[in-house]
């Protein structure tokens, strides 16, 4: 590994100061499961890594009347072992349970998954359909960015030099809300998505009409894709196979995949249609309870 210094600040302020000082020569270290692989491959010319796990705000899971705040360095295992998260944010738990194997889940978290900005990231689409907000601190203070807008290209995000993702805020799910995430991989475990879909729905009190919906696609474009037309087509509709199939077909149209070692354009688009149908159906089942 190319030599770099190891810094372990204990406050957000201190972390932002050192990140700002080093500019693009430093990266925050949370779980390290992407960072250390990339550091070893000399993807960056690093002078320092800034371990952010000693900062209390980045380690916290906190519920309040508004929703859930997950610190940026909270590992997947702490997410799926939290009963309240499992109850309220099922789509998020779907993703946290399938990122890597158990060893990876001991370290990797949603914050790092988001900042790594991979188009195939399992964690980002479920955050999007849960209307997640990224809480960022930087040299110019705090800002909040919708996770919908966080990724700007493969491994590229809106984070500027010196900025640190502190936490992810998830609004409290409304009544009759459900979310779900799945991916297609050729193996059963430990693989990168060929295509993946997250969906969420909010149902009417009689649970027959979709009042709100959101759909996001992974691994079928340079960033996670918010399939707006597909979600809009569901809103106000009475639940039926036709309604769901139509939305799935619109999601397929929103996908802009490439052909690569993991799959072809045609396969990926078809997968999006199938997985969208399944995830809308699953979200509805979960919303109905």
């Amino acid at each position: 590994m190319h030599p770099f210094a190891y810094l372990a600040p204990t406050t957000v302020k201190e972390a932002v100061e050192v990140l700002n000082k080093y500019g693009d020569k430093a990266r925050p270290l949370a779980g390290g499961t992407d960072l250390l692989v990339k550091a070893r491959a000399n993807v960056w010319d690093l002078d320092a890594v800034v371990d952010v796990k000693n900062i209390p705000e980045l380690n916290k899971i906190n519920f309040d009347s508004e929703g859930l705040t997950i610190g940026a360095s909270v590992a997947c295992c702490h997410i799926y072992e939290n009963e309240q998260i499992c109850d309220e944010y099922e789509g998020i738990v779907d993703a946290a349970s399938i990122i890597g194997g158990i060893q990876i889940q001991s370290r990797a978290g949603l914050g790092g998954n988001l900042c790594n900005g991979a188009p195939s990231a399992d964690g980002i689409c479920p955050l999007i359909v849960n209307n997640a907000i990224a809480i960022i601190e930087g040299p110019n203070g705090k800002r909040e960015v919708s996770v919908d807008d966080f990724c700007t290209g493969p491994s590229k995000t809106i984070l500027e030099n010196g900025e640190l993702l502190v936490s992810i805020f998830l609004p409290k799910p409304k009544e009759n809300f459900g979310s779900a995430y799945t991916r297609f991989i050729p193996r059963n475990e430990m693989d990168i998505a060929v295509a993946a879909v997250a969906a969420s729905v909010k149902l009417s009190p009689d649970k027959n009409i979709i009042e709100d919906a959101k759909i996001a696609l992974a691994s079928v474009g340079p960033t996670p894709i918010v399939a707006e037309d597909a979600a809009k087509s569901l809103i106000g509709g009475t639940i039926s196979d036709e309604l769901i199939n139509n939305a799935a077909s619109l999601a397929k149209n929103a996908a802009t995949p490439i052909t690569d070692m993991r799959g072809t354009i045609e396969q990926r688009k078809d997968l999006v249609e199938v997985l969208t149908r399944r995830m809308i159906t699953k979200s509805i089942e979960r919303a109905r309870g």
């Binding site: 190891y6 372990a8 270290l29 779980g31 390290g32 499961t33 250390l36 692989v37 070893r40 890594v49 371990d51 796990k53 295992c77 890597g100 194997g101 158990i102 060893q103 990876i104 001991s106 370290r107 430990m190």
Partner: peptide, 26 residues
């Protein structure tokens, strides 16, 4: 050396991790 094979698995504070993806200072 990239977190796929698990040959380097050790236990840190009760959790199994890939030791190739942990820095010594951590």
């Amino acid at each position: 050396l990239d977190g796929n094979c698990g040959a380097c698995t050790v236990n840190v504070d009760g959790r199994i991790v890939d030791s190739c993806l942990v820095l010594g200072p951590e």
